[in-house]
Design a protein around this nucleic acid. Structure first.
Lengths: 227, 227
DNA sequence: GCGGTCCGATCGATCGATCGATAGAGTCAC
DNA sequence: GTGACTCTATCGATCGATCGATCGGACCGC
């Protein structure tokens, strides 16, 4: 009853099974949530039996922690690149925002799981994922602080502005529709402009980082542990 | 074995059982999600047996739709009041933002369920809740349009700005901590200022609507179907 | 024949939902 | 007033289905 085993193939899923499982989990969890999808449906989506699933993963929660950590590590990696390759608070913030928006628009399923399923994690795993999230947000915090110190940003409550901006940009994954009326670059540049307004940096020249960020997202998300 | 039936009481839960059930559902669902809490735990939290639960409600999903619709109807009611009692796009938007932020900060559990469990609803129920959400957002859309038409707001993509602002303000329910360093009125006024920046209305005088909105929220959320 | 892959069968637990039964308060005929 | 009857509120027990997870063994390339 299986479909692809025959004819000299190296064995159906020997390579990439873990990846297929993670991809299936992201597809289903992003639509209905961690507790809304059972092991059997997960297995079916990945093209395996539920027993085989457990050959590759630990518990269901282990799989979620894995998916979330991988997603967050990629975000951190991308933010690190931005920080290395863009100097000055203004250009750096501009690139961070466009990167965040593009990531959430291009990979809405991954980011929805990363942003929304923390509550399904218990104890230590929760803490580990939260510290990864904090590590990512540190790039935003540092850039905002830098801009305030240099006078490039004029904002009274930087902590609140950071949270507000992150919520605003993360929300893109909840409403952006590739088939809709708004082009991706409009959304990314538009949010960069809104961010500059929020931070009181309207004189900032808004460089279009869409293509560069798109390349970065593509590179990082097809890289090690890719997909 | 029951506890409160004697001594002239009108019977333990005869009044308010539905309300107790909804409150229990909000408490548990806001922490672990609709699919993360079973009927038995729900019943225990409400102080009833799972069988008795079904005397008051339809299915579990009916209860969710009820909770969500009630929350959204309150939001709509509050937005309608704001629109009636504040004239001009600037003051109106200022009040709408402060109302939204206060509602999400004062009733984070209700709003988290309303904002985050739509995916657990199927078919018609989903549509009904979505149209209530659209009805609420229409107040924001109309106010932004009005401000653009009058020249009070200078924003290029009003649709995107509306979505960005809503995400930003809704996010308050995800991070605001009453015991934290930020006072509620700082958060509300701060978001009003960020909104005025986003909308390009920096010359707008930011009236403090915190007390008025707090009263409105208290009135509406303790009113019919209260809690 | 060994190690890596894979699955059918099955585990105990829990899921959402329903059953029949009971306790008590109100109603009404007589 | 009192017995028969109804209505609401409540529960213990239980339904069939599904949950997450495990086990033993089959298959297959090396």
């Amino acid at each position: 009853m299986r479909t692809g085993t025959g004819a000299g193939m190296p064995q159906r899923g020997a390579v990439g099974a873990e990846e297929r499982i993670r991809a299936a989990a992201v597809r289903l969890w992003s639509e209905r949530g961690f507790h809304g999808v059972g092991i059997r449906e997960l297995a079916e989506e990945a093209g395996l039996s539920s027993a085989t699933l457990y050959h590759y993963m630990g518990t269901k929660e282990d799989l979620l922690a894995d998916v979330m950590s991988r997603g967050l590590r990629r975000l951190v990696l991308a933010a690190e690149r931005v920080t290395q390759q863009r100097a000055g608070a203004g250009p750096r913030m501009n690139a961070l925002v466009q990167l965040h928006v593009l990531t959430h628009a291009l990979r809405p399923r991954e980011t929805r799981v990363v942003d929304g399923e923390l509550r399904a994690l218990s104890g230590d795993r929760r803490g580990g994922v939260m510290s990864l999230r904090d590590e990512y947000e540190r790039y935003w915090r540092a850039t905002i602080d830098e801009g305030r110190a240099s006078g490039a940003f004029r904002v009274e409550a930087p902590g609140m502005a950071r949270l507000a901006l992150l919520e605003m940009c993360t929300g893109v994954a909840r409403w952006y529709d590739p088939g809709g009326p708004m082009a991706l670059s409009e959304v990314a540049l538009g949010h960069a402009q809104l961010a500059s307004r929020v931070l009181g940096a309207e004189e900032l020249e808004l460089v279009d980082e869409v293509d560069w960020c798109r390349g970065l997202v593509g590179e990082i998300w097809s890289g090690p542990g890719g997909g």
